[in-house]
Simulated scan of single mutants.
Amino acid sequence: MAEEKATSEWRKETLAVHAGGMKEAIFGEVSPPIFQTSTFGFTSAEEGAARFAGEQSGYIYTRMNNPTVNALEDAVAVLENGTWAVAAATGMAAISTVLLSLLSQGEGVAAGDCLYGPTRVVIQRELPRFGIRSFFVDTSNPELLEEILGTRPKLVFLETPANPTMKITDVAAAARLAHAVGALLIVDNTFATPYCQRPLELGADLVVHSLTKALNGHSDVLGGMIVGRDDGLEKKIKKFVTLTGATMDPHQGWLIWRGMRTLALRLERAQANALNLAEFLQNHPKVAWVSYPGLPNHPQYRIARRQMEGFGFMLSFGVKSGLEGGRILMNHLKLITVAVSLGGVESLIQHPASMTHASLPRQEREQVGLTDDLVRLSVGCEAIEDLRADLNQALNRIA
């Protein structure tokens, strides 16, 4: 459960620093300790039996619960304004847990048509093996979403902003439509983070995160999280994580919690840099288009302003000369690193069509707006002048 001391009166900047670290200390420590243990001892056989029977609280085995991991869960739950959170080993472990713990044979999931590549592969290719139907739709279009909900799916799964097109879905509208047909709404909030957007407050039933990205912020650890408010969902999800062993390691959890303490500082800098670069790129002669929710010409700019407290650190843009232009750009960058992942203090750039989304057939990619000229940029905390200069010199190499 999220900590009672973390009240809604505290601002998000304060919560990022203190959430998860406010329980009674053992030795007065400011930073929670790492409980690097696989198992926990009992004072008696009776105590062990009582814990296994659920008659007494306490720790048994780290696959089930661990104090360090629980502290991280409390922190993320507080930031998302949820009442509980369940950690997982990776972002994909969190996503797979939600899908497999809540869906049964004969049921269906309606998902955003443009998702993180492995997420779409799991929904499109793996779930049908268990008799679970999958449907894909542009969730940024409420009319199309309402139409697909006529299939009566049990879950609606979406990203906003979407990876990598940066489309924005109206979460409140999606929640109303999903609930009208008895479906649960799950939102992947990795791109926005709870610093910029809290889907549970907008009506979503569950939020998932790849903690590997901005919440950790240092490109050095993997992790995932599921956050919600319904206790019944928590029991199903926690049981699945425990039984399948998708558990987070305590050292992993501590590193992510430590990274979260600087979330506000990192996000403020990265967001300012992202908006600056978006404005710079849309006026560059070698750039065909830019997609960033903070630009007034973004198709869902008004929705983004209404449901987000910041526009995030991610942007996509199209390079003239298409795939070849993108190759030239990335091969001549000196500061920005060519790599997948996102949300770290360093800026990362990649080409989705040949990297993160290469497993999708070209026709499917193009149908959802993932064109060959699309380049995805995760903007970091470097000096904006250096980032602009690096992009400019590399773009100018394009004929």
Results as ranks from 00 to 15, higher is better:
residue 267 L to Y: 07
residue 356 T to Y: 14
residue 222 L to A: 15
residue 229 R to E: 15
residue 5 K to A: 09
residue 218 H to N: 07
residue 41 G to H: 14
residue 322 G to I: 03
residue 247 T to A: 12
residue 228 G to K: 09
residue 266 R to M: 03
residue 370 L to H: 00
residue 340 V to A: 10
residue 166 M to W: 02
residue 264 A to P: 04
residue 337 T to L: 11
residue 378 S to I: 01
residue 396 N to F: 02
residue 254 W to Q: 14
residue 1 M to L: 09
residue 258 R to Y: 07
residue 332 H to F: 03
residue 29 E to P: 07
residue 195 Y to G: 03
residue 134 S to R: 05
residue 124 Q to Y: 04
residue 146 E to N: 15
residue 159 E to R: 00
residue 25 A to N: 06
residue 135 F to W: 14
residue 370 L to N: 04
residue 385 E to K: 12
residue 175 A to W: 01
residue 146 E to D: 14
residue 364 E to H: 09
residue 353 A to R: 13
residue 384 I to W: 06
residue 241 V to M: 06
residue 359 S to R: 13
residue 349 I to G: 04
residue 91 G to K: 06
residue 318 G to N: 10
residue 212 T to M: 14
residue 29 E to Q: 14
residue 345 V to P: 00
residue 394 A to K: 00
residue 307 Q to D: 08
residue 161 P to I: 02
residue 181 V to N: 12
residue 53 A to K: 10
residue 152 R to F: 08
residue 86 V to S: 06
residue 82 G to H: 08
residue 150 G to C: 07
residue 70 N to P: 00
residue 77 A to M: 01
residue 23 K to S: 09
residue 155 L to R: 01
residue 47 E to L: 05
residue 187 V to W: 09
residue 347 S to V: 07
residue 214 A to T: 09
residue 321 S to A: 13
residue 66 N to W: 11
residue 28 G to C: 13
residue 162 A to W: 05
residue 99 L to N: 05
residue 356 T to C: 12
residue 265 L to Q: 08
residue 200 L to Q: 14
residue 161 P to K: 01
residue 268 E to P: 01
